[in-house]
């Protein structure tokens, strides 16, 4: 069984190797003539406004929290979908309260304005 996952491991190794080799080659063989302009943080071409280590709004935390909750709920749908045919009507009945609570939480979140940014 684990042998089937060897291609994924090879892909991970290739991806890591690509990053390590590229960064390593430019680190060891690249020439460095640093200037104040070159040392500024790269901000997609625009001049960086503030230090990137500043404090972020708590709104981001709320977004991350909601993301995790719905992420966990989505994870539960995967094994259910795989065995849906075997479980039949019972499987549907088992999932209904779960989905209703999921929809209820979405409605609550929407009405409470948690999806609004301001």
């Amino acid at each position: 069984m684990p042998q089937e996952y060897l291609p994924i491991l090879i892909l991970l190794a290739l991806a890591t190797g690509f990053a390590v080799v590229n960064l390593g080659v430019s680190f060891f063989f690249g020439c460095r003539r640093p200037t104040a302009e070159k040392d500024t943080a790269y901000e997609c071409g625009i001049v960086p406004e503030t230090n990137a280590r500043g404090r972020f709004s708590v709104k981001f935390f709320l977004v991350a929290m909601l993301f995790i909750v719905f992420d966990v709920e989505t994870i539960f749908l995967f094994p259910w979908a795989v065995v849906f045919r075997e479980l039949g009507g019972f499987g549907l009945a088992a999932m209904t309260p779960f989905m209703l609570l999921l929809i209820a939480s979405l409605i609550y979140e929407w009405k409470r304005g948690a999806l609004e940014w301001d």
């Binding site: 909601l66 909750v69 966990v72 609570l101 939480s105 609550y108 409470r112 948690a114």
Partner: peptide, 13 residues
């Protein structure tokens, strides 16, 4: 999960 979500919204909001 529902409780966790409501708790997060109440606290952060």
């Amino acid at each position: 999960l529902l409780a966790a979500m409501i708790g997060a919204i109440v606290l952060a909001k």
